[in-house]
């Protein structure tokens, strides 16, 4: 019944702690695009692919006491930290979800910063387009982030690295 919740919890468990809602959104989107069976629907938003369903699911997990959310003031905005609670860990031990390579995949993404993951997820969102057109999308839609050609190349390489992890 709570299979989709369990998948999300598993992703947070293997990551240890995820700092930032944006980062969490991007990590789940990238994992979904590359191979993992997350069911949340995404659409393009301010910071790239965003899922309202995922936001609601996280809220539900917090309300159920499975997920611990810490809100901290960071300069001009609030930042959120997510970890699993003991009840969450207990729930997962009874409802294990089999997702091979999840840990190495999420650990790697968790080591990246949210800005880079935003670029990676934007590239994946437009993966039906050739690289030059994707670059135009990035420069137009994400002009405030001032991504460079080199960063776009790096993001493409990173996508290949991630794909290699699940093969």
């Amino acid at each position: 019944m709570l299979n989709d919740h369990a998948k999300l919890m598993q992703a947070i468990r293997v990551s240890g702690e995820i700092v930032g809602r944006k980062k969490l959104q991007k990590m789940i989107y990238i994992a979904k695009k590359i191979s993992f069976p997350f069911q949340e629907r995404f659409q393009f938003h301010f910071y790239g692919p965003y899922s309202e369903e995922l936001t609601l699911r996280v809220e539900e997990l917090c309300n159920m006491g499975f997920l611990h959310e810490v809100k901290e003031k960071k300069g001009g905005y609030f930042q959120y930290r997510y970890t699993l609670t003991d009840s969450g860990l207990e729930f997962l031990s009874d409802n294990e979800v089999d997702m091979p390579h999840l840990e190495e995949f999420f650990s790697d993404m968790n080591d990246q910063n949210a800005r880079f993951l935003e670029l990676v997820s934007t590239i994946l969102y437009f993966d039906n387009l050739p690289k030059e057109e994707v670059a135009t999308k990035v420069f137009t839609l994400k002009s405030s982030q001032r991504y460079t050609e080199a960063e776009i190349d790096e993001a493409y390489q990173y996508i290949e690295t991630l794909k290699g992890k699940v093969q």
Binding site: F46, Q79, Y80
Partner: peptide, 9 residues
């Protein structure tokens, strides 16, 4: 929706 931007961080 200026507040949404902050909510998404």
């Amino acid at each position: 929706n200026p507040k949404d931007e902050i909510k998404l961080m």
